[in-house]
Design a protein around this nucleic acid. Sequence first.
DNA 1: TAGTGGCATAAGGAAACCTTATAGCTATGT
DNA 2: ACATAGCTATAAGGTTTCCTTATGCCACTA
Lengths: 309, 309
Amino acid sequence: MPLIEPVPDVRSLDLLHSVAELGSIRQAALRHTMSQPAASMRLRSLERALDLQLLDRSHGRAQLTSAGVAVVQWSEEVLEGMRSLLLGAQAVRSDGKTHLRVVASMTVAEYLVPGWLNRLRASDPAIIVSLQMGNTQHVIEVMLRGDAEIGFVEGRHAPSELGSRTVQSDNLVVVVAPSHRWARRRKPVSALELSTTPLVVREAGSGTREVLEGAMSSRGLTLTTSVELGSTTAIKAAVASGAGPGVVSRLAIETDVQDGRLVVVATEGLLLERSIRMVWSKKRPLSSTAKRLVRQIDDSSSSRRPVQP
Amino acid sequence: MPLIEPVPDVRSLDLLHSVAELGSIRQAALRHTMSQPAASMRLRSLERALDLQLLDRSHGRAQLTSAGVAVVQWSEEVLEGMRSLLLGAQAVRSDGKTHLRVVASMTVAEYLVPGWLNRLRASDPAIIVSLQMGNTQHVIEVMLRGDAEIGFVEGRHAPSELGSRTVQSDNLVVVVAPSHRWARRRKPVSALELSTTPLVVREAGSGTREVLEGAMSSRGLTLTTSVELGSTTAIKAAVASGAGPGVVSRLAIETDVQDGRLVVVATEGLLLERSIRMVWSKKRPLSSTAKRLVRQIDDSSSSRRPVQP
DNA sequence: TAGTGGCATAAGGAAACCTTATAGCTATGT
DNA sequence: ACATAGCTATAAGGTTTCCTTATGCCACTA
């Protein structure tokens, strides 16, 4: 889903911001070290792109219209984001001794690792972490190749060349759109009912899918699929737009449930648990930075407590 | 303070984002309806602008480097901001009846409104909503000027020209970094202890701050501040990196607590509640779209259910 | 009424960008 | 080893965008 054209130029937004602050196109042009006509033209083309009158030029100096004020506000988020991107790029460039390479499978990388890394960065902003993501197989390959110090996978695959340890548990849940009839249902969905309902799931070979099929086959049941998608995000989008029940990691849908996009349906008779394992190379000892990360993770899972104390 | 040149083009960031998702420059080019060489050149010039190697092209298909992953992450904020800007501009442009202008104070706008609007859009994709944010004062001004149909503020300010009604309640909580000693504490923090501890809080005049000071003064206590910051996000970042206890809205920290960046500390003896109020102009009746939003909100606060069914 | 600061338009040249055509490279399968 | 398929880079040519300088008009102010 690319942005809708025409996309305004960020520097034009920046310029508009200066106009709002300084009250004149001329001053803004000076601040941005460009000629006044250039600034004037930029702003005009911005107005053309947004199809909005942003400035009122009929009173000598340029005055923001109400639409202009609104756009300035919205552009603040964009500018803030751009600033941190530029700053971040600079940091990566001037880089790093305390460099930690992490590779994780999708769900962990998307929903768990960011929290860990934020804490790690908070404890020492000089630490630079690069995160690579892929499926379980990919994680193993990267680790064996020595292209990352530490990895995370879902499920219980434990190749012999690599050490591994469980760091957290996760479980799968059934979700539906708020408009789906199951959203208002009180009784849990039985294993049998679930196995005969077409579900939106990940493609065969993914960790999520394996757990689901394993749980069903242990009860002598088989999975019925409605759509098979390649990412958790795709599943969430499909389910939210009415594609029927889907199965995803609980970790992946917390905010969607809070925002009312998805509703969790209780199930019974199926063990949809799986562990999240850390893997490392037995050949090389963990780097000190990697050790810190491990300590952070252990701390956070033991000291975690509910929001309601 | 203009942006530091060179500023990368947002469409290039968008393109990079697609490359990350689709795994190939060619596919990304297709999605963005441009030729493959054009995409290739855009990405190359993005790399030149940032002075970073973002893609590894040595294996047939393009693979993100660690720097590439980092840039994609940062660019997400930029793209998100640009998307809401474009959406907002579209809303301001179209004067039709499917157009709803909402203005909300920071906490509500960031943590509550997105969920409501998503549900509203789901119920009727034709509805176009523009969201503006600011402090309580700003919300009132916009409403009085008639630049929005409906507004949301924290606290109980009720100017006479505007109607208002409580739609939800919120409360403030004390949070600390997981490394802080209070994180492991069992006993609730007393009002007295809290009032004598330097806290990280919002600046004077903010709704959050007013509630906190009000609650303390009703017990004959006064607030001791350690740092005063201008946004909830800033407070969270400061607290997470060890600046001592902070006070923020519960709404704002749910995911941070889940991710282990912050820990909630129980308190006793202070009533840190506040209501979130909807405000509208008494002069004009609510538009039909606004009424739908109100109904959505009422529904969602009554039918909301916990993640664990 | 003159002056000052500010914005718009015009013209010319430089730079950026896109498209089509083409060639080289990598992985996969026979 | 060979061939095919899919992907990316380079080249050439044309269009569009953007900037700068020069100049005129307009609105406030003294």
